[in-house]
Amino acid sequence: MPTLEGMCRNITTLRGLEPAATPEEIEAAARQFVRKISGVQSLSPTTEPAFERAVRAVTDAATTLLDDLPPRRTPPKTEPPLRRLAAAREKSA
């Protein structure tokens, strides 16, 4: 069963990242969005199917949106959580 742990409370801007947002970053943002609007804090056998369908739909919509928007003039002010975690792991290694 997928975990909802390790996500931040806010969804960060993915448009304009260098390098571009990865599929994993887009899915993480979709999971955070679905978690927030559904109020599902942990998955159970009764919530998991609907939750995962919603994550796939939001991931697909977000990917299409990011692909269709024009380039951003300035990069976003914050990095996505997955990049912050990777940077922290590199510093501690």
Rank of each mutant, 00 (worst) to 15 (best):
T12R: 15
A28H: 11
E5Y: 03
T46W: 11
S44N: 05
N10I: 11
T63Y: 00
T64I: 01
K77Q: 10
A28S: 14
L65V: 01
S92I: 12
V58M: 13
T46I: 10
A62G: 09
R89T: 08
E5C: 03
E27G: 08
R31Q: 07
A28R: 12
K36G: 11
R83C: 07
E48Q: 10
A62Q: 12
P80N: 02
Q41A: 13
T13S: 08
L14S: 05
I11T: 12
C8V: 06
K36H: 11
L66H: 00
F33T: 07
E48L: 14
R35K: 12
E18M: 13
P23E: 06
I37A: 06
E52Y: 04
L14V: 03
S92V: 14
D67E: 10
E25D: 07
T59P: 02
P76D: 07
R15I: 03
S38Y: 09
R83N: 05
R15P: 00
V34Y: 12
R31H: 04
C8A: 13
K36C: 04
M1P: 13
R72F: 00
D68H: 03
A29Y: 02
V58Q: 14
E24F: 06
S42P: 05
V34T: 13
L82H: 00
L85H: 09
T46E: 15
T12V: 09
E18R: 15
E27A: 14
L66S: 02
P49L: 08
N10F: 14
L69F: 06
T12L: 07
S42H: 12
A28I: 06
I37M: 12
L14K: 05
T46M: 15
T12Q: 14
P2S: 09
S44P: 07
G39L: 04
P75D: 01
D68G: 10
E48G: 08
E24H: 06
R53G: 15
V34M: 12
Q41K: 09
R89D: 08
E24A: 13
A50E: 11
L65H: 04
S38A: 11
S92L: 15
E5H: 06
K91A: 14
